[in-house]
Design a protein around this nucleic acid. Structure first.
Lengths: 241, 241
DNA sequence: TAGATTGTTAATCGATTAACAATC
DNA sequence: TAGATTGTTAATCGATTAACAATC
């Protein structure tokens, strides 16, 4: 009995692939801006700093959108990657904590070209409530639940001091937010159904320090095992020019 | 012929482990502040959101610093982790691009409790050169090479607009900087000996959007294969309280 | 000694990559 | 048809995890 259903395309794109799709998308958009109509996996891999086999494998998880002997149609691939990432719909974002970082985030224009709408800015400091930041009024954190409901916020960005982060997170989760981007240097506890991603300056610096130490050591792993540029894949660096 | 050398302790700590050490360190420092003298792998794992077997394996790469039946001495483990990460020496950091983000970074006090010294702030905008930010004068990017030399900068933090990032990076690399933390939304090209780490708001949001879409889909992987909270390990989230 | 907890083993899982048949 | 490039296979590598012997 041979399988003959329309093939329930293997769901479950690997996390590692998901994390690279935005990088490909950005490169594709740059190519599009330059008017480049098609691109090969080799070229796209070079500009994004990955192995071309990996790139092809990543894209193959979305479907067969390339043409053998030719490459990928830039426009079409942009559409497919965008769709896969959920960028064909708009997501409302609330930023909580409007200090220097919150302002930087609010003013960061190109959210990967659309897909996101900054819907609300919230802060606990009454003296800045009412101020306009990036064209939006800062509102008081007291009305977080109300704002999340009215603006249909689906992603909460926490840019508060560490001490406030867990409480803010609990309130976000409490009113139905299931995606959180955390800039505060704390590990947030959330139910399993909530996705948290973390951006942490001091952790990044410490990882760099580890490798920097290895370099100047004179006896680090890099020299003994011949692996300089050890972050080449952990991060996004690459040799090219 | 049995091996009887002092055992050249297996070098080459896995990247995944290195990335978690700063998280453990922060938790240990919090325990220390509370006056907690020892901690078990189970407890430390719970507060940092990792599996306790993974935590023990991670720590085992540094040496045998625990006591069976007891746990780890908090003070001693802080020292060992700090040493491994290279935080027992001070690293000079230069921040390039003093917009909202650069200011936020400059003002971010607790660099994981010491280990880093903000040595210089640089910007291309003459109208802000001379301003004091976080107690430091903003200097003109023209003198980048001189500042890197005089201040012995080993880590460059790029917080410029995307268009300027590669040029700034090239200049940093040109004067000997081999560790770069990049906040600009571009893939930097660097020689293999240079480590680049990247922090990218819009990529993080896009990854969240992908998972958010899966949730509301009504037919996402999470429901079909029973894996809600799919980022539990990619990020740093965890259920606990 | 009994109870607790480490450090390590080994199984498993997921991600990377070279190589190449398929095919434009 | 000849040349180019995809999509996939299979080998390899690295990371995770449960389980438990070692030992405090």
């Amino acid at each position: 009995m041979t399988r003959r259903t329309p093939r329930p395309r293997e769901r479950g794109i690997p996390e590692a692939t998901v994390a690279r799709l935005p990088v490909y998308l950005r490169a594709l958009q740059a190519l599009n801006d330059q008017g480049t109509p098609t691109v090969s996996s080799e070229d796209l891999a070079a500009t994004t700093g990955v192995n071309s086999a990996k790139l092809r494998k990543d894209l193959s998880h979305l479907g067969s959108y390339g043409t053998r002997g030719v490459g990928y149609d830039v426009d079409y691939l942009i559409y497919q990657v965008s769709r896969e990432l959920g960028l064909t719909q708009d997501w409302s974002v609330a930023i909580i904590g409007i200090g220097n970082l919150g302002r930087a985030l609010a003013n960061y224009g190109g959210f990967g070209s659309r897909g996101f709408r900054i819907a609300a800015l919230l802060d606990a400091d009454s003296s800045i409530v009412g101020d306009k930041v990036a064209g939006l009024p800062v509102r008081h954190i007291e009305i977080l639940e109300e704002v999340v409901g009215v603006e249909d916020v689906s992603i909460g960005v926490i840019a508060t001091p560490a001490a406030a982060a867990q409480t803010v997170c609990d309130r976000l989760v409490g009113c139905g937010v299931t995606s959180v981007l955390n800039f505060a240097p704390v590990v947030l506890n959330v139910p399993a159904a909530v996705d948290v991603r973390k951006v942490d300056l001091s952790i990044e610096l410490q990882i760099l320090a580890f490798h920097e130490q290895r370099k100047s050591d004179g006896h680090g792993a890099s020299e003994w095992f011949g692996m300089p540029g050890s972050l080449r894949d952990a991060g996004t660096s690459d040799l090219s020019g």
